[in-house]
Computed example of a mutant assay.
Amino acid sequence: MLHITLRQLQVFDAVARHLSFSRASGELHLSQPAVSMQVKQLEEALGLPVFEQIGKKIFLTDAGREVQRVSQAIEQQLLDLENTLADLRGVRGGSLTVGVVSTAHYFATRLMAQFRQQRPDVRLTLNVVNRETLLNQLAANETDLAIMGQPPLGRDLEAQAFMLNPLVVIAPPHHPLAGERGIPFRRLAEEPMLAREVGSGTRNAMEGLFHEHGLTLQPAMEMNKNEAIKQAVEVGLGLGVVSLHTVERELAAGRIITLDVEGFPILRHWFLVHRQGKRLSPAAQAFRDYVLEEGARKGAVDL
């Protein structure tokens, strides 16, 4: 039986996040010797070092990384307990962390704003990250719910589609293909294409469609942000494939247009995702119900 305390784990977690004893002491309002003593007592209880120093920097050991994983899980369980007890006491509120892929933040922020009007007592946190980071956060139980495209198999995730996510081809208004109808896909493949980074949902969809036509996607440029792709398209660096939800303002302003290309729009879905077997807090359950109800009310097409 390990004889360690929550305080030791709290201090360890602060040092592990900052990889600095001095920064951890500032966050915890403790002296640096007090922080060092808590970590030393933790290491004595574990029988293994949790940090190693190389030069002037400290790093987590293998044991330290394992302790960090468990520490984060314990912190999440305590938050779940807090929310559950508050619900049992009939107290509204609680906390909710929602992670979204960058493509989805255009409407996810609106969803959260609408939800907050109904539940102003809930403490909301929105993390906008790329797809792989969001999958890692789900695996580490660092987010309650996630909004993303089709999640991969084999990740122990529960996912429910709630809204269509049409992918469209965008171009500058002066492009030679502007106004043409039924543009053959091979004609599109002759144009310089701007693509998201490997592993993103949009990139996967593009590569899949190229493969269906016996072609290989060879992007003229790769970018890790939709904003960068939109701006590059506007100035004529190439064509892009993006979610229609990300370009509503630009289309309305006439800064870009969509092209009528064979195979487009690619109709995909947005999914609400959480870890398999995760016990959702009352706040998380309320948000999940709200999102699914909104998707059903809007016909799962738009919000």
Results as ranks from 00 to 15, higher is better:
192 P>I: 06
85 L>A: 13
191 E>C: 10
264 F>W: 02
100 V>C: 15
229 I>T: 01
242 V>D: 02
105 H>E: 15
177 L>P: 03
262 E>V: 03
231 Q>D: 08
68 Q>E: 15
279 R>V: 14
226 N>M: 05
154 G>N: 02
60 L>T: 08
121 D>Q: 12
60 L>Y: 07
286 A>G: 08
115 F>L: 06
41 Q>R: 09
159 A>E: 06
144 D>A: 08
9 L>G: 09
88 L>D: 15
74 I>F: 13
64 G>T: 05
233 V>N: 00
264 F>Y: 06
233 V>C: 09
148 M>P: 05
142 E>Y: 02
26 G>E: 11
193 M>I: 13
16 A>K: 04
173 P>Q: 08
278 K>W: 11
288 R>T: 11
87 D>P: 06
190 E>A: 13
251 L>K: 00
269 H>S: 15
162 F>L: 02
69 R>C: 12
281 S>F: 11
169 V>S: 01
255 R>V: 10
71 S>N: 10
96 L>R: 04
161 A>E: 03
150 Q>E: 14
187 R>V: 10
25 S>N: 05
100 V>H: 07
71 S>P: 11
243 S>P: 05
49 P>Q: 11
152 P>I: 10
125 T>R: 09
17 R>V: 05
146 A>F: 05
81 L>F: 12
264 F>C: 00
171 A>L: 08
218 Q>N: 15
241 V>I: 15
119 R>V: 12
278 K>I: 09
139 A>E: 14
198 V>T: 11
267 L>G: 00
261 V>S: 01
167 L>H: 02
166 P>Y: 00
282 P>L: 05
244 L>E: 00
224 N>W: 06
142 E>P: 02
119 R>D: 09
124 L>R: 04
275 R>H: 13
141 N>P: 08
196 R>I: 07
25 S>F: 01
285 Q>A: 15
290 Y>N: 03
288 R>W: 09
283 A>T: 04
215 L>H: 09
215 L>E: 14
60 L>W: 06
69 R>Q: 14
134 L>E: 08
149 G>S: 11
119 R>W: 10
129 V>E: 12
72 Q>R: 12
80 D>Q: 14
166 P>S: 01
225 K>S: 13
111 L>N: 04
233 V>L: 11
299 G>K: 02
26 G>L: 05
210 F>A: 12
136 N>G: 13
287 F>W: 07
202 T>E: 00
25 S>H: 01
67 V>D: 06
229 I>F: 13
216 T>K: 13
98 V>I: 15
210 F>Q: 07
47 G>H: 05
295 G>S: 05
55 G>P: 01
134 L>I: 08
249 R>W: 02
111 L>E: 03
59 F>W: 10
210 F>N: 03
231 Q>K: 04
70 V>N: 09
9 L>Y: 06
271 F>Y: 15
254 G>W: 08
176 P>W: 05
234 E>F: 03
139 A>C: 04
137 Q>T: 07
272 L>D: 05
199 G>N: 09
278 K>L: 15
23 R>V: 01
102 S>I: 09
303 L>A: 11
295 G>D: 02
297 R>A: 14
248 E>Q: 13
70 V>H: 08
